[in-house]
Amino acid sequence: MTNDEAAAIVQAVIASVLDTDANGIDQDTPLIGGQAQIDSIKLVEVCLALEDRAEQLGFEFDWTSEATLSRSRSMFRSVGALAEVFAKQAGGGK
């Protein structure tokens, strides 16, 4: 899976959780901080939905373990950052 493919999945999941369309969401869309359009509990839902998506794709998406967090402290910074971790765990990430 490429980072772009992962970003498309993350964008679609966010759109679904926020019940909006994916057009206004791009790789630079912030997920945490003052600029973020999504609150932390919605972001939890996004990550849980990504877990489910990963399961369908045949891998486990880990966003809670210390190991993952210490490797990528900024994974929740933006859509692109989250997508990169998702792609890497899927066995891609180019």
């Binding site: 932390s40 509990i41 972001l43 939890v44 990550c47 849980l48 966003w63 809670t64 967090l69 929740f76």
Partner: peptide, 10 residues
């Protein structure tokens, strides 16, 4: 309750 790094638990 499950631990997560965003809200502590959900």
């Amino acid at each position: 309750g499950r631990d997560n790094p965003l809200t502590g638990q959900h």
